[in-house]
Structures are given as structure tokens and as C-alpha cells.
Simulated assay, not measured.
Amino acid sequence: MASSHPGYSAISSESRVQILHLLQTRPLRTIDELVESTGLHPNTVREHLQRLSDDGYIVSQTERRETRGRPRTLYSAATGDEEAMSPVAQRKVQEAAERGDLMRRVLPDTDNGDLNDDELHQIDALVENLIDSGFDPIVDPTDLTIDLSPCAHLGQADDAPTTRCAVHVTLLQAIVTQAGGPLNVDGLRPACNPQDCVIQLRRGSAAT
């Protein structure tokens, strides 16, 4: 069962979603840039960045300067690629795979479709992240879907999809990239009911 407290999730905060969206759109941003774009107090931005870093959603590096002055810290969204890989996210992926392997040994009759070990480990990482984010994911290994309905982060039944959805899809793609394997996040399946949320996975290159 998923957590009943999505408020504890890093993506439950609109401000953190806004910051993540900015970093996903353009990496290597400074705190000053994020303050200007969000209108938040610098200390508030720092707190959000720390939370996002602790959860493995962003990475930072020190600016290389050729002129005098104190180097600034540059922030980027963790993509799972070598140049933007989070050690926190890597640890979570490894631990999720270990727990998934243990569960499959205990419950050998679980239907895993025709998924290979790498694909199973990618889904292990996705499922653990989704549970931590307040969802109750249901995996269909044949259709390569993860059903999150009803959306734990949608306040009203008539809410339209928001930036949060796009940010979350990008986060999930970073997780499967970090885990390694042939699966990628294709996006969300179209739905008439805004509370319906089904993630479509596919084998092959990531959707652009």
C-alpha cells in the first residue's frame, strides 16, 4: 500500500516542482537565477534545493571560473546520465533491485511477464519511487504500464494536467536511465478523467 502522506514527497510542493521544472528545462542554474525565476526567498530556495538533493532529484557542481571571484554552485536536474548522475539516486536504485530480487525469491509465482532482470530492476526502482511519492502503483508487465489512478497529487476531479505531470514523467525517465536497461518512459496514456494516471513504458529509445 502506498504512503497516505503524499505531503512528505519532494514533488508534493509546488515550489519544488517549479524549481525542478526550471532545472529540467535548463541545467546549471545558480541560486540567484532560481530566486529570480520563482520569486522565492533565497533561504527558501536553498531549503528546497537541499530537499531535492537529499532525495536524489538534483545534482550540483562548482562553477569553473577563469576570472577572480568566488565560484558559484550550479544546480541541474539529475538525469541518470553520467554527466548528471546522483549518488543518492544510484543507491536507491541498487537497494530497490535488491529488495525486488528478494521478493521474487520469496514469491516465485509472481507474474513478471517476459521481463528480463534489467527490466525488472528498472520497474523495481520506479515502483519504490512512486510509493515514496504517495502513489499506489499497479504494474502490468505485459502492457508495460504502471497505473497510478487515482492520482495522489491531484486535488480536484476537474483539475487539468499541470506542469507537475511533465516534471514527474521526466523524473521517472531519469530513474530508469539510472537503473540501466532497455525500458524507457513513453509518457502518460490519454485519459478522459483527470484523476486517471497510467504511465506507459516501452523498450527502446526514450521519447523526445
Rank of each mutant, 00 (worst) to 15 (best):
131 I>R: 15
155 G>Q: 03
41 H>W: 05
191 A>W: 04
75 Y>K: 07
141 P>K: 07
151 C>P: 04
86 S>H: 01
176 V>N: 10
41 H>C: 04
146 I>H: 07
180 G>N: 00
67 T>Q: 10
89 A>Q: 06
94 Q>C: 08
174 A>F: 00
53 S>Q: 13
56 G>F: 13
81 D>L: 12
7 G>V: 14
10 A>W: 03
131 I>F: 07
52 L>N: 09
190 P>Y: 02
132 D>A: 15
163 T>V: 05
57 Y>M: 12
149 S>H: 09
155 G>N: 04
76 S>T: 06
184 N>M: 14
10 A>H: 09
191 A>I: 04
166 A>H: 11
79 T>D: 01
125 A>D: 04
38 T>V: 01
18 Q>L: 13
63 E>S: 11
75 Y>V: 02
142 T>Y: 08
158 D>L: 12
53 S>W: 12
202 R>T: 10
58 I>A: 05
151 C>T: 01
74 L>F: 03
11 I>W: 01
177 T>W: 01
9 S>W: 11
104 R>Q: 03
157 A>Q: 05
10 A>K: 09
10 A>T: 08
102 L>T: 08
45 V>N: 12
187 G>C: 10
69 G>D: 05
106 V>M: 15
195 Q>G: 02
17 V>L: 11
156 Q>S: 12
1 M>I: 14
206 A>W: 01
19 I>L: 01
89 A>S: 07
198 V>L: 15
180 G>D: 04
152 A>S: 14
38 T>S: 09
155 G>A: 05
175 I>P: 00
178 Q>E: 12
142 T>C: 02
66 E>D: 07
24 Q>C: 00
99 R>M: 11
76 S>C: 09
114 D>M: 05
40 L>M: 09
23 L>G: 01
28 L>H: 05
122 Q>H: 06
184 N>T: 10
154 L>T: 11
52 L>I: 12
107 L>A: 11
160 A>I: 02
144 L>Q: 04
107 L>F: 14
188 L>M: 11
9 S>A: 15
45 V>Y: 08
168 H>P: 00
133 S>V: 01
106 V>T: 15
195 Q>Y: 00
98 E>P: 10
66 E>S: 00
158 D>F: 12
73 T>Y: 08
141 P>E: 06
159 D>E: 03
135 F>M: 06
99 R>K: 04
169 V>A: 15
44 T>V: 12
5 H>I: 07
198 V>W: 14
135 F>G: 10
53 S>N: 11
144 L>Y: 09
177 T>K: 00
61 Q>S: 03
196 D>I: 01
12 S>Q: 05
131 I>H: 09
1 M>K: 14
27 P>G: 07
71 P>L: 08
65 R>M: 06
98 E>A: 14
2 A>V: 08
108 P>I: 13
124 D>Y: 04
189 R>F: 06
109 D>C: 06
18 Q>I: 00
189 R>E: 15
206 A>Q: 07
200 Q>R: 12
158 D>S: 04
30 T>C: 07
123 I>A: 03
192 C>Q: 14
69 G>A: 00
68 R>E: 13
1 M>P: 14
189 R>I: 14
98 E>C: 08
122 Q>L: 02
117 D>E: 14
115 L>M: 14
95 E>F: 08
189 R>L: 15
181 G>R: 02
53 S>L: 12
